[in-house]
Design a protein around this nucleic acid. Structure first.
Lengths: 80, 80, 80, 80
DNA sequence: AAGGAGCCGTTGCGCC
DNA sequence: GGCGCAACGGCTCCTT
């Protein structure tokens, strides 16, 4: 780590970060509302989140993972 | 929890969420870049994050907290 | 919240907590080692963690969850 | 990642992990009880947790961190 | 019922 | 390129 800046750029950096954080928080709020909407529509929010997460992964990675899961569960005598 | 919707609103909800998530990710990327910038300016990113966190709390809550911290540390014989 | 204790019980409480935390950390270390062992045996640690998590849930909850997942994925036209 | 083991060691590994996890959970339960005890004694649990966290860090690291915090807050015109 | 705090698992990053 | 650490997001419990 080098020397700390002394020319007052810190304040500018902090304010830029706070502005972006604010925007991020607004978006997050919007997302939360959509989940609430889904909930009123009868959807299970927790499962919905899992679905979203799955869709983020590329299909082959996902398939690989599912296949490993199944193999391990078999080896343990668990029902899938 | 009521019955699950069956009229295809699920797809719309999922896509709205994904769109918002995308935007959120872009903002997060921007924030990360500002931190990198700060780092090149010689600032300690970890400390910077703490500063940002502190500024999010309102001042009176912060003062109360600091005072309690001090009291407990005294009671434990710790240097502040 | 009532008044803060002043008769030095704080130190005793803190030390008891720290002792327990220490033990917890040792156990966590042991767990980590078992995962490493599993890894050397050719197992995928990430998947293994998921298996452990699944086993923690009771079977009916697990079945319910899986069935919902499948339903939603169908509704979205995703391959399972 | 190499080939998955096929000689049934998986079950043994899983059970060892679950046993250790169980012990860890018991300790965690004990810690929670001590915090409750502290709370009935009039201590603020959240602050108490911060104290414990601070004590985990070695003193010089802590001093360095505190000094940086102060410097940044000065540069931002914040009261400490 | 809603929000906050702690905990856990995951991911990304820097170090070695 | 593996390892450990720190930030992040999600889940749960508890409080209000």
């Amino acid at each position: 780590m080098t020397q700390s800046g002394t020319n007052g750029q810190l304040k500018a950096l902090v304010e830029r970060i706070e502005r972006e954080e604010e925007q991020k928080a607004e978006i997050a709020e919007g997302i939360k509302e959509i989940y609430l909407e889904a909930k009123s529509g009868g959807y299970d929010v927790k499962i919905l989140r899992k679905i979203i997460a799955i869709r983020k992964k590329d299909p082959s990675a996902r398939a690989e993972e599912a296949s490993l899961m199944e193999a391990y569960m078999n080896e343990l005598g668990m029902a899938q």
